[in-house]
Design a protein around this nucleic acid. Structure first.
Lengths: 123, 123
DNA sequence: ACCGTTACTATCATTCTTGTTGGTATGGAA
DNA sequence: TTCCATACCAACAAGAATGATAGTAACGGT
């Protein structure tokens, strides 16, 4: 990823995309948010392999990239919801492409059957 | 990328693909090899921002993933050529998809014109 | 009165990734 | 004869990403 010293504006467009959805969690976050807006805690429960800290950091970056909006409710305990923008939702076909190639890779290299649970992406 | 502790065989297919072409250099290597087989030194000159060490490491991983073949000539000074497999070449449409989304991202977020030099991917 | 809940932030420790440097063998050029 | 070129590898250093842990405020439930 090395997002730090990458010039997103002028690098190759392929790199730009990878800097936006590369990594392990951003695709998962997008995937879950394609279902609808979700609270922070919901996301952490949907992605138990990620720490809260990571989810927070990824959400911040995605917000800065215009992929999602943050809806803060002035309540206690706090309530914050995240929702994909139209732009963020436009990643769906990109994820689909990545998913299809990945399935071929897993089949040819490992003889693995595609894992379930990515229905929104696979369709 | 954190390739280390990722189970490529059983993880989500999206992750699998990202583990194979994620990062800054693998897409560039694939891109240049789509033009035809190339020697090691050619690649380092085509991708001057990467150190030789990185190119070597990336090539090794890509070979292990079945994306390319290594042709070693028993000569001195050494001569080694790298060539995409059919499987590796099947990444072209994936790169294209990433490239197209990246262009939109750069246009909408930064008003940047698409950078030249990715013709083989852009078509 | 006490505890759990939420959506974080801040700090440190650990692990991963990348860079830097130096070395190798030998044939051909200068 | 000395130097360069090639395709690396090994060792160490620096830098970046991630994990673990603790803390916050105020409300509802027991």
């Amino acid at each position: 990823m090395r997002a730090k010293r990458l010039d997103r504006a002028n690098c190759c467009a392929v790199e730009a995309t990878l800097s936006v959805i590369g990594g392990v969690w951003k695709p998962m976050i997008v995937y879950h948010l394609l279902e609808g807006r979700k609270r922070f805690m919901e996301l952490t429960r949907l992605i138990p392999s990620a720490t809260q800290r990571m989810i927070t950091l990824q959400l911040r970056e995605m917000e800065a990239d215009g992929l999602l909006n943050r809806h803060v409710y002035a309540e206690v305990p706090p309530k914050v919801e995240y929702e994909l923008t139209e732009f963020g939702a436009s990643l769906a076909p990109v994820l689909k492409t990545l998913h299809q190639w990945g399935e071929r890779y897993q089949r040819e290299r490992y003889g693995t059957e595609p894992s379930l649970g990515c229905k929104r992406v696979a369709d």
